[in-house]
Amino acid sequence: MNLEALVDCLSSASCAVTQVSTGLIVGMLLFLVTSGLSLIFGVLGIINFTHGAFYMMGAYFAFTAYALTGSFLASMAAGAIGVGLFGMAFERLVMSRVYGRDILMQLLVCYAMILILDDGVKILYGGEYRMMGMPDVFALPPVEIAGGFVPGYYLFMVGVALAAGLVLWLGINRTRLGKIVRALAINPQMVGALGINTTLLYAGVFGLGSLLAGLAGALAAPIRTLTPGMGVSILIESFIVTVIGGMGSIAGAFLAALLIGFTRAFGAIGFPLFVDGLMFALMALVLVVKPSGLLGREAA
């Protein structure tokens, strides 16, 4: 423990700016992945364990699109939309067949899919490390804010994540479609009885959740190494965030992702060796005290 260093850092503007931005950078990409996981759970009641693999696909799609077109926008679109469509297909062809069954059956299906996707990536791209490369637009020195430094790309990344989160939240809470989706989460029979095509809605929500994972993967592609199996650690982290924030709560995911981000950013200064243990401990604590998570509804 080094509280002195922590206090020192907080009292210096440059350190505070750098560390706060670090927390946001770590947290916001995590939020983007987690929001998709949480959305799918909230509406469909299933845990999409393939979410990490979708993130990986997003990164590889972006990598390919960037290599072909050289356009960063195209790479983001390819990652997000490509994975979104794949997610819808996966929901229709596979996942919908295990709705209402044992959670273990869903887990098994997802595991099979992870195995297939990881191997597929290896067959297509080989086992080598890949890096998409930083687009020229962002090849700038880091921006200086009050003596602290923040890279331009990270500002963009945090912006996209925040925007996506905001759009998602507004979409669910302020639109007619959002109202239907919320109703779907609570009483699908009633929604179906009103003549709304629930099958399409389910696929749409699953696709949207997958799209968010794909977008996160595409955003990560310029700065993180692409390898088969890269989704595993992301899955575990976003899983922890989902549990802490509350299964199915977007706002909870946001809060928990920030919490993890800041714990890691300031933990690196104050208590460097505890950060990992702290995450598990936090998860266990939340589960014991309030199993439904910080902002989750009580279990039905």
């Binding site: 750098t18 560390q19 931005s21 670090t22 950078i25 770590v26 990409l29 990270y154 990560a220 993180r224 190494t225 890269m230 650690s233 992301i234 890691r264 950013a265 933990g267 690196a268 200064i269 460097p272």
Partner: peptide, 10 residues
């Protein structure tokens, strides 16, 4: 680890 931001800023 996929992300090293906190180590780099440290």
């Amino acid at each position: 680890a996929p992300d090293y931001t906190e180590s780099i800023t440290k």
